[in-house]
Design a protein around this nucleic acid. Structure first.
Lengths: 336, 336
DNA sequence: GTGAAAGCGCTAACAG
DNA sequence: CTGTTAGCGCTTTCAC
């Protein structure tokens, strides 16, 4: 039994395919199809439970009704929540979502962008990697609706939705300073992407303003590819080298988790030995003992802004540039 | 500037579209195209950076190269990890993945299955909800390659990949019994889906074998739609009603998290006041104090089995039924 | 008000 | 060994 097509409906309703097409696309005003015919056609459609073939339609219109979502890692809670909201809003607007993770790997990132282009997605939301700048530029040249998420390239003119990372770590560092910590370390991952850079800068800036000096900061940058063990060793060495350090500020929640692991394994006490805070919340941070103070991202809001920005771009203003930087929030708990 | 097509390549290479089509589909053996022509065509293709139009191809072949993944909730760590692995393996095999969450809502589940059908996915991996049985049956009748995941309908003949939930809670209950707990409570969510049923049954079975009676069990079932506050109240009342209870076994990790919240808020001590264990691991469970003992699912393995089963079904044996039940593992920590 | 027909880009049966 | 041609199912221009 073959699937039913436009032609079948037309035949059964005794009209042409054009008429049926106009009816299913609600263009009966323009073509001025008579109400009687519209009703008859609709009846036949319902009777046969007819559903237009999306693919044929896409071939003809050049629109696929799908959007591509490229994130760093869907299994990470932050991106998982983001992608859930984006999918939901997209579906409500008649779009399907194809999701993929780069794991911050440039090669994979380029492959995925290529794949999305091949798939002819109508628009893209991407969390770029450092090496994908050229591909992003390329997408722009091709007039593909695009919004960068979580980070962007300051020297490439794109729409984006990001967190104000600078303010996030500036605020958190000031918060620690106010709490009386004197020697705050910032523990981060090596990355030239601007979201991590901005977190680092916010930290430095707060210290600079507070101590009137550029030198009173303690920064540990893990190589991106380092294992947990290597990170432990680097952290150990770092803390031995700077025994004055009294607070640890982790640049992301997964670094925070590694930090907790380290603290636990060394039988250190928080906040007695070290004040302990992290960028990004995590659903169990509040249940730890002590619970972890964090600078949290407004996840739901970020996702909504991202998808709505893309929808706007796709619907009406493909050449417009929409740039949004949302405010983070410090959630004070008991780890400092 | 229009996108380049098969026809353009054919013209430029001075051959017919057939020849080009055969070349790009690597069917030059069968058609016995001369090596010279193959090389020339390939050169023109490379020169023009030509990429076949996926949509036209899909329209012609009836294959879209996409698979649908319907889970309960992608923002949940378990499903997020599953979906990441599935996407990765799918991409390696030339398939794109469209993901969606049902939130265990029947209506949404049906809509999503419908959407996937409309999108003409080549195959589906779905975590079904109770009310989607008929739609699943329907998919089967239409010969859509399908594998159910996490749970299945005992009375519908489908391929599936699930955890041996019965054994998981049987083992965990026995483990607690061996530890000396006498009155173990099982705290779960109301659900007629077989994965939750089996967890409950495993618990009951262990107690039955141990106490030679059907009656020594303490089961608390939260209504599916209940809020955290309502769950707190039910739990309070439950523990007051059965003061003998000395161990709490939570049926899923999100219930476990609520349990931790409850314990913390009531200033109760684990394992002094209650032994505390949960089904499903969570990445911070091991850092809590005490760390939580769990029965863990082999996430990576489950995902691999699911996608590979689907790939098998799609490639060669659409009518075969492949049923897999994987073994859980108890991870003993310090909460009991 | 409605219909005929072209064509989106590709594959595959058939012809030579 | 290679080319011609008929669609896949739909939208849209143009004609009546």
């Amino acid at each position: 039994m073959k699937r039913i097509s436009l032609k079948d409906i037309a035949k059964e309703a005794g009209v042409s395919v054009t008429t049926v097409s106009l009816v299913i696309n609600d263009k009966t005003e323009k073509g001025r199809i008579s109400k009687a015919v519209v009703d008859r056609v609709n009846e036949v459609i319902k009777l046969n439970n007819y559903q237009p073939n999306t693919i044929a339609r896409s071939l003809r219109t050049g629109k696929t009704g799908t959007i591509g979502l490229i994130v760093e890692d869907v299994s990470n809670h932050f991106f998982a929540s983001i992608s859930k909201t984006i999918e939901l809003v997209a579906y409500k607007n008649g779009y399907k979502v194809i999701t993929a993770s780069t794991d911050n790997d440039d090669k994979r990132s380029l492959e995925l962008i290529e794949m999305m282009k091949l798939q002819q997605v109508d628009g893209l939301i991407v969390t770029p990697t450092v090496g994908s700048k050229f591909a992003i530029q390329d997408l722009l040249n091709q007039k593909k609706p695009l919004v960068l998420f979580d980070r962007f390239f300051p020297d490439v003119e794109t729409s984006y939705v990001v967190l104000d990372n600078f303010k996030g770590s500036l605020d958190m560092t000031n918060y620690l300073l106010k709490k009386g910590y004197k020697h705050i370390a910032f523990i981060t991952i090596q990355s030239s992407m601007n979201q991590m850079q901005n977190r680092l800068e916010g930290y430095k800036q707060a210290l600079k303003l507070h101590t009137k000096s550029d030198k009173n900061n303690y920064v540990l940058e893990f190589p991106y590819e380092s294992t947990k063990l290597e990170k432990f060793k680097l952290l150990s060495k770092f803390l031995k080298t700077y025994p004055k350090i009294d607070a640890l500020f982790f640049g992301t929640n997964y670094l925070g988790i590694i930090g907790i692991d380290y603290i636990t394994s060394k039988n250190l006490l928080v906040p007695k030995d070290y004040g302990f805070v992290s960028f990004d919340d995590h659903d169990l941070f509040k249940f730890l003992n002590p619970s972890i103070t964090v600078v949290a991202q407004p996840i739901e809001l970020l996702a909504n802004e991202a998808i709505n920005t893309l929808l706007t771009l796709m619907k009406s203003s493909p050449n417009e540039l929409i740039k949004k930087s949302l405010l983070p929030k410090i959630i004070a708990r008991t780890s400092e």
